[in-house]
């Protein structure tokens, strides 16, 4: 083969690829260079949490292709945030959302459909507020913004044992292949059954790390966000008991981002404990009748059920 450089170049162009891309393909199959990753990251949309300041500390919201763990004491709003994300991921592309679907894996039985409906209504009414012009058009054509359609976009699994939890995560691979529009998987909570009845702690750690690897893989393969809600426990360190997220130290390596929800005086706050790209930060947020919102923005803090 006696090609000149120019001929080779022309041949590469024929492949309809940038020359360095081809070189990269030849070097290591499946690898991606850092520059491409950056541009892909920048074009990627994030899932809004409903609170602007919470989005800010998360770098725009919950990221696809990443595993985010959210922990906190009972009643601080973990499930609320989980439901909120399941609704927000469905905001249509026209309104700046992802227009995806959600998988909600409920291990605790705390998923209340009435509340989901309420949060969906809150989300729609906020969309209408931000896009008043779209609203005018809506009367003519787009009438798909109904709470019912948001509810139809949440695939719900109720898990009653850790075996089922392992099974469902294994099964997700197939399920997500059949439902390619799923953009977020929420597990509420990843802890419950494993703390309940798993005897052998060393085995538990290995099984859990296997699960987290699978979830990490799913998030990359199907370009979706994985959100794990976790309970808290007390841990004895430096002479006193402190709160910490459950499942131990080795588990804490298995998520990309870790967000801790806590009370600070009379405010609910979120603390970004771990992130590969963002600084540690905390911000207040609120849970209103419409769902998760900025602290102090809402005039009606009381949730009312009809």
């Amino acid at each position: 083969m006696n090609h000149t450089d120019e001929e080779a170049y022309a041949a590469l162009r024929g492949c309809d690829m940038a020359p360095n891309k081809t070189a990269q393909k030849l070097l290591l199959q499946g690898a991606q260079n850092a520059w491409d990753m950056l541009s892909e990251e920048q074009s990627q949309k994030h899932i809004t949490t409903g609170s602007g300041s919470l989005n800010d500390i998360l770098g725009g919201g919950i990221h696809c292709k990443e595993v985010t763990e959210i922990g906190g004491v009972p009643g601080v709003g973990k499930t609320q945030l989980g439901i909120q994300l399941a609704i927000n991921v469905q905001i249509p592309v026209d309104y700046g959302g992802l227009g995806g679907k959600a998988v909600y894996i409920d291990t605790e039985g705390s998923f209340m459909v009435e509340r989901v409906y309420q949060i969906a209504e809150g989300c729609i009414s906020d969309i209408m507020e931000y896009f008043p012009c779209h609203h005018d058009k809506a009367s003519s054509g787009q009438e798909n913004l109904q709470p019912e359609s948001f509810l139809a976009g949440i695939y719900y699994f109720r898990i009653c044992s850790y075996t089922e939890q392992i099974a469902v995560i294994n099964y997700l691979e197939k399920f997500l292949g059949e439902h390619k529009d799923v953009r977020i998987v929420i597990i509420d909570s990843v802890t419950f059954h494993f703390r309940q009845d798993f005897e052998d702690l060393a085995l538990r750690t290995r099984v859990l790390s296997g699960l987290s690897l699978k979830l990490m893989k799913l998030s990359k393969a199907y370009n979706l966000a994985v959100v794990l809600l976790n309970q808290v426990t007390t841990k004895f360190t430096e002479g006193s008991f402190q709160l910490t997220l459950a499942l131990g130290d080795s588990w804490s390596h298995s998520c990309t981002n870790r967000l801790i929800l806590y009370w600070k005086g009379n405010e609910r706050c979120a603390y970004l404990d771990k992130s590969p790209s963002l600084p540690v930060a905390s911000t207040p947020y609120a849970v209103t009748s419409k769902g998760v919102r900025d602290a102090g923005s809402s005039s009606c803090k009381r949730v009312r059920v009809m």
Partner: peptide, 29 residues
Amino acid sequence: AVRHVSEFACPPCQTALALLEERVRLGGG
């Protein structure tokens, strides 16, 4: 083996809407 067993052990999936309809059918929550 794991894949096959998981598929059988996995509980059925429902949409939240179906859940709501069931709730309404069984008498308003």
